[in-house]
Design a protein around this nucleic acid. Structure first.
Length: 842
RNA sequence: GGGCGCGUAGCUCAGUUGGCUAGAGCGCUGCCCUUACAAGGCAGAUGUCGGGGGUUCGACUCCCUCCGCGCCCACCA
């Protein structure tokens, strides 16, 4: 046993961080079988943004569980992944290196980005392979800062297991998953309307949409009805008039009953379009009739699909109106020349410019009535985008969703912590529309293992992919060649073309359980760790990450990917505002918090956020955590200085009472942890610990010194030793550094590999010290005795006397039951209170 | 518009199936260098439990309703 004279938190973190790494304290023992393992599908942090306290908070929550399960005897599989795949990384790399990917450029072997990044608006164009390589470099550096943070905060991750979402394992798994779904017709390629970001030139999935309130205006357009009468239509998108393919009204709307099945004619373009009925048309909106354009919004897509309408595409992928020829098939007009003249005014303009121009044209030709009426309305944006989404048709890969009942059943099967989070999942499943588009027109991502044949005329057949074989994965179709072809045939008539796109990042991260457990690369590991036990994650990505992962596992394994989902809340600053992500040495920079308060203290703060609850960023809580850690050092030093031992008999009623109360605490903390309520486990442990220090230690210290004979001394020493060991165990998941330090003073091995405290064993010790068979240990004795001691202190405090003031006599008045309990530890009270005599009065 | 969560001391939050005078910590006030700890210890004060109804012997806890905050979802012509 070696106890420092002046225990301190100084240097503990570096010391134990190193020791744990050297000794492999958290190493996963892969000889263990599935039922002995607790496996965690750690969220791979997006290696693109700044670190903020929210990261620390939620990852620490997972670590509490990991450490608890490890002490419970489970072999914890706790790897870390890195999400370095996708658009966020591309943007970060563009910013950090001052480059931009231009896929038309050839690979430049010697390219290096400039030391100093140039002007943001003048990026250096680089080839796709060069750009992907840059992404890899940048990501590696960022991963180091993340590694440092996770180590500093004490995550008990086994760093020898892990993955990158752009790494070979992830690419193999993604491509294998792709091929298998395709083979089962659960995945298909089709040209279809797709939400499209015109700035990033990429398709966007339903889950990445957000609504933003922006100004707009109603324009009232004069269509001509079938009998030459005016038919007024309100629209916020007049520029889409040339794309109008029908006029729609509600089937029950009496105003339009006579018109259904007949035709209207558009202003400016003279296109004859059918007047159709659909219940999505709202009689109370505008004039009750709407124009259906291909495509202004998702409702247009629904109408177009369900009513089997034609298509007139005017918005191109760059967000400008493309040239079209009026009078050609599909672009019929009652006056093609006039239509063309009007359209030529719009072609080449952006949507916004075209809107302004067409409003003028309409006004000039009497096609509108009155001024546009300004409104503010919600418009769909991509969450990363800056201009409203357009809808374009293009070739995309889609995964079919399983039927809703199957998905809802999976949601029920999963244990949610907290349970109410299941509702978010169910809401999302019930609101699903269309299939899951997994195609992104980007560069840094997992490519599709597909090529397309080119006919002798040079036309690519985008709907007849040539697929890679599973054993050739991962492939990069832009670098690899399909079987039966050679490189010279790339992009040649009679040859092949690579699939130009990459997978949506969710198409890969929906397979994190499979990737991290070795589905493709390590079947032995897979058998020992899958399905996994726990998915910890944030609530805002239930509809994406969680949902998609359930879908993939449902298809691949006909099972849930994990048994439990622990959903963490947000971190708020004390003003109750959501934390901004602008960090970087800000007061809320987690590395600053850790160096200021200590890792254990920051973890203590994080433990206050139960699953699903938001947590305020509060330095005050961190101070308390630091105080607690220091108290643990000092109290432990004191207890151990009294020659505490964990072997022996505990005979004194007060000691037995303390152990019984401690056993109850262990039971409660264990039950709380099993419900993922680590916050309660800590709260109760902390409460017990402070009263243990304030009351129990004071009550027994003189006896432990030997003031009351050997039997009483031995009892106290054993009780102190058992209590200390138990408390260190209960605190270990929360305060790994300080508990390990204290543990090392007097115990072998690591506290983090020691067994979780055993309530029954404590009760047995408490019972074994009984004087008679009926003498049950009574947790209330300690409470009564502590209350009495507190009264004595209060009297001294009110008399403004020192606590060491001698008291000649004390009279205690209470119920006979409580006095009987007090009587069991009268000598300890006298000793702690420096009391000469105690008289009890019922 | 629909759903979920939250609203308890100045602040951050506990309060498990309804049950004795509603709790903790921080902060505040006072006292104490007590042989583990003065970056400490001891003690004290502090509440219309968001408002209003209802059920009940009894409601912070259950039901209804309203108010406020947050989040998720929604077809946005």
């Amino acid at each position: 046993m070696s106890i420092p004279d002046k225990p301190s938190l100084e240097g503990l973190e570096a010391k134990w961080r190193q020791r744990w790494a050297d000794e492999g304290t958290y190493r996963f023992d892969r000889s263990k079988s599935r039922d002995e393992v607790f496996s965690i599908d750690t969220p791979p942090p997006t290696v693109s943004g700044a670190l903020h306290p929210g990261h620390v908070c939620s990852y620490t929550h997972t670590d509490f569980i990991a450490r608890y399960q490890r002490m419970r005897g489970r072999e914890v599989y706790y790897p870390m992944g890195w999400d370095d795949n996708g658009l966020n990384v591309e943007r970060r790399v563009q910013l950090l290196t001052g480059t931009r990917c231009d896929p038309s450029l050839p690979y430049d072997r010697d390219f290096r980005p400039p030391e100093k990044v140039g002007r943001k608006d003048k990026p250096i164009p680089v080839s796709r392979p060069n750009f992907v390589a840059l992404c890899g470099e940048v990501v590696e550096k960022l991963e180091e800062t993340y590694f440092d943070l996770w180590s500093d905060i004490g995550l008990s991750v086994d760093w020898s297991y892990g993955y990158r979402t752009i790494g070979p394992e992830a690419r193999r798994a993604s491509q294998r998953g792709f091929l298998r779904l395709l083979a089962r017709d659960l995945l298909y390629r089709s040209e279809s309307p797709t939400l499209w970001d015109v700035d990033f030139r990429t398709a966007v999935a339903q889950a990445e949409l957000e609504d933003r309130e922006i100004p707009g205006a109603y324009h009232k357009l004069r269509f001509r009805g079938p009998d030459g009468e005016d038919l007024w239509i309100d629209t916020t998108r007049p520029e889409l008039l040339p794309a109008c393919v029908a006029v729609v009204a509600h089937p029950d709307d009496p105003r339009f009953q006579p018109l259904f099945g007949r035709a209207a004619t558009t202003p400016l373009f003279g296109a004859e379009v059918p007047i159709v009925a659909h219940e999505l048309a709202d009689p109370d909106k505008g004039t009750g009739a709407a124009m259906i354009c291909t495509f202004g919004d998702t409702t247009d897509v629904t109408w177009w699909r369900e009513l089997g309408l034609g298509i007139r595409t005017v918005v191109d992928r760059d967000g400008r109106l493309r040239p079209v020829t009026w009078g050609s098939p599909g672009w019929e007009s009652t006056d093609p020349a006039r239509a063309q003249a009007h359209y030529d005014e719009l072609a080449g303009r952006t949507v916004r410019q075209a809107q302004a121009r067409i409003a003028e044209l309409l006004a000039e030709t009497g096609g509108t009535q009155g001024e546009p009426r300004p409104i503010t309305h919600p418009v769909k944006f991509w969450e990363n985008g800056s201009r409203p989404l357009e809808i374009v048709t293009s070739d995309q890969w889609f995964i079919r969703y399983p039927d809703k009942d199957a998905m809802l059943a999976r949601g029920k099967e999963l244990a949610w912590w907290p349970d109410f989070m299941r509702v978010r999942y169910e809401n999302w499943v019930n609101g699903l529309q269309g299939d899951w588009n997994i195609t992104r027109q980007r560069f840094f991502g997992v490519p599709f293992p597909a090529w397309y044949p080119i006919d002798t005329e040079g036309r690519v057949d985008w709907l007849s992919p040539i697929l890679a074989s599973e054993d050739s994965l991962p492939v990069d179709p832009t670098a690899d060649v399909p079987a039966g072809y050679d490189e010279s045939q790339r992009n040649q008539p009679g040859g092949f073309a690579a699939d130009p796109d990459v997978m949506d990042t969710w198409a890969t991260s929906s397979l994190t359980p499979q990737i991290v457990t070795g589905w493709v690369d390590d079947p032995d590991l897979f058998a020992r760790t899958f399905p996994m036990d726990l998915r910890p994650q944030a609530h805002e990505i239930i509809r994406t990450w969680l949902f998609y992962t359930v879908v993939r596992s449902h298809y691949e394994h006909d099972a849930l990917p994990w048994g439990n989902a622990a959903i963490s809340g947000f971190v708020f600053d004390p003003d109750r505002k959501k934390l901004s992500k602008s960090a970087g040495n800000a007061p809320d920079d987690p590395t600053v918090l850790i160096s200021t308060y200590g890792a254990d203290a920051v973890r203590y703060w994080a433990a206050g956020g139960r699953p699903g609850m938001d947590l305020a960023l509060e330095p005050g809580q961190m101070k308390i955590g630091r105080k607690l850690a220091i108290k643990l050092l000092n109290a432990s030093k004191f207890a151990l200085g009294l020659e505490s031992t964990t072997a022996g008999t505990v005979t004194e009623p007060l000691d037995r009472s303390m152990l019984a109360a401690l056993a109850d605490l262990v039971s409660e903390a264990t039950a709380a942890f099993d419900r993922y309520d680590y916050a309660r486990a800590l709260e109760r442990t902390e409460g017990f610990f402070w009263s243990f220090c304030d009351d129990y230690l004071e009550l027994v210290k003189n006896r432990a010194y030997g003031a009351d004979g050997e039997a009483g001394q031995a009892s106290a020493r054993t009780a102190l030793g058992l209590a200390l060991r138990t408390l260190l165990g209960l605190f270990a998941p929360f305060l790994p550094f300080v508990t390990e330090e204290v543990w090392s003073w007097w115990q072998e091995g690591s506290v983090h590999r020691s067994p979780w405290p055993d309530a029954d064993a404590l009760r047995e010790v408490a019972e074994a010290g009984a004087a008679t068979v009926a003498d049950e240990p009574d947790p209330a004795v300690l409470a009564v005795v502590a209350a009495a001691l507190s009264e004595v202190r209060k009297a001294k405090s009110e008399a403004k006397r020192s606590m060491r003031t001698e008291v000649t006599s004390v009279t205690v008045t209470d119920t006979p039951e409580r006095l009987a309990r007090l009587d069991l530890a009268l000598d300890d009270v006298r000793s702690a209170g420096r009391i000469g005599a105690i008289e009890v009065v019922p």
